[in-house]
């Protein structure tokens, strides 16, 4: 099994089950979307997969490897990459340095070596990976601009660059289209399609239905902690359940 597999995932807060036994496959080479109303548990699920939140039951495996007990940074090193609902980037570092941090921490290195200033044997590979990612996302022109001074849309791309520079096998995006204008959304959709075509497993949590229709191969509708409908985005959005949630849109 390539890609990300979630089995029987549970997370309770107090007496409330935020995620209530979710099975979800995020296959490599496709874009999978997770949709649903506020408070359905999408963000909680996302946090359980990345390890930012602990889970009360279930497993998360990536390309056959069990990630369930790992710390978030260890999951990142195992090939899981993610971005945040509110943009999180290294505002003081340049765009290139942002991507570089993503690339060079992929493997652990003795901290003392860094302290003593020993040369990093992987320096050249890191540099190449960074160059490639920036070019692919169209960020080469702003490579040396401090990331904190860029407009929102570009910041989203910088986050993506940091995630991709680590050469992940699965990519999780939490509302990547929020804060983007229409042109940027089209571009993002384009980028995600190409990434999936290259064999990456992509999971989106998103509210923007047009974006989902344009980019996702599969959609899962989550309500009150459970996945209630799965299938092609158009089919899922045509179900009565989805109609209740997204009444009056489009």
């Amino acid at each position: 099994m390539t890609g990300l597999a979630i089995r029987g995932l549970r997370r309770r807060f107090g007496g409330v089950a935020a995620v209530d036994g979710v099975d979800l496959d995020v296959p490599a080479g496709a874009v999978t979307a997770l949709i649903g109303p506020n408070g359905a548990g999408k963000t909680t699920l996302f946090h359980c997969v990345t390890g930012l939140d602990r889970l009360d039951g279930g497993t998360v495996t990536l390309a056959g490897r069990d990630l369930t007990g790992l710390a978030p940074h260890a999951r990142a090193r195992a090939g899981l990459a993610w971005t945040f609902q509110r943009i999180e980037l290294f505002a003081g570092l340049t765009v290139a340095e942002n991507a570089r941090v993503g690339a060079e921490n992929r493997r652990g290195r003795p901290l003392v070596a860094g302290l003593l200033g020993l040369p990093d044997p992987r320096r050249a590979t890191v540099g190449a990976a960074v160059g490639l990612v920036l070019e692919r996302l169209g960020l080469a022109a702003v490579a040396d601009v401090p990331a904190g001074t860029l407009p929102t849309g570009t910041m989203r791309l910088v986050e993506l660059a940091r995630a991709l520079a680590a050469e992940p096998t699965a990519l999780l995006l939490d509302e990547p289209a929020s804060g983007l204008d229409d042109r940027q959304i089209v571009r993002l959709a384009d980028v995600l399609r190409t990434l999936a075509a290259d064999g990456l497993a992509v999971l989106l949590v998103e509210h923007d239905l047009r974006f989902i229709r344009a980019v996702a191969d599969t959609a899962h509708l989550m309500i009150a902690g459970r996945v209630e409908a799965s299938g092609r985005p158009d089919d899922v959005l045509a179900t009565p359940l989805a109609h209740d949630v997204y009444a009056g849109e489009d």
Binding site: P37, N38, Q85, H207, D208, L209, V245, Y246, A247, G248, E249
Partner: peptide, 9 residues
Amino acid sequence: QGLASALAG
């Protein structure tokens, strides 16, 4: 921010 668009509308 953070609201489903139906509710926001």
